[in-house]
């Protein structure tokens, strides 16, 4: 099949999103379904079909999402209301919007990669946690256990205050 000439193709926009918490990376397919559900929940099926949101890539604490040009603001609003991916609490923050993937990839390469150090076990308020210490004071605590794995967000100063 002969591809459409560029002038007849739909113009697209690419959004670079920061994933919070960055570890572990969500599955791209799960992320796609969550984005699509958010868009449909706010704007309905008809607008979602016109917007055509697609997850291009996902990893290292960042995701790239595509939509039709003119719908990037609506997609950003839908992404603001996204709170979980596959039952895991998550927040996505738009970092940049671009007309080409090349520009976004160049932008990602300029961002510092997420680096952390794992401390296990760590005792906090009579419970046992696995801690992830990120650059710049941030410490995430994941409770050890099978049923209820509480996730706490602290700083290095909080841990030193114990």
């Amino acid at each position: 099949m002969k591809p459409r000439p560029p002038t007849l193709r739909e113009k697209k926009r690419y959004l670079l999103l920061r994933i919070d918490p960055p570890i572990p990376d969500p599955d791209p397919k799960d992320l796609y379904f969550s984005v699509l559900e958010s868009v449909t929940s706010i704007y309905g099926d008809a607008e979602a079909a016109r917007m055509m949101p697609v997850v291009i890539s996902c990893g290292s604490g960042y995701a790239v999402v595509r939509c039709i040009r003119g719908y990037e603001e609506k997609l950003r609003i839908a992404i603001v209301t996204l709170t979980s991916v596959a039952e895991r609490r998550i927040a996505l923050h738009a970092v940049a919007t671009s007309g080409t993937l090349f520009a976004l990839r160049r932008r990602v390469s300029g961002l510092s990669p997420v680096s952390f150090e794992t401390i296990s076990p760590l005792h906090f308020r009579d419970r046992e946690y696995t801690a992830r210490r990120y650059q710049g004071q941030k410490v995430d605590l994941q409770e050890k256990g099978i049923n209820r794995q509480e996730l706490l967000f602290l700083t290095q100063d909080d841990l030193e205050g114990i």
Binding site: D20, P21, I42, E73, R76, I77, V80, T81, T83, R89, I90, A91, H93, A94, L151, F153
Partner: peptide, 18 residues
């Protein structure tokens, strides 16, 4: 109630247009 619930002023501006 969590850092995951926080939204930036820009995101709030967009949300308020709803």
């Amino acid at each position: 109630c969590s850092v995951l619930d926080l939204r930036s002023p820009d995101e709030i501006r967009l949300l308020c247009t709803l």
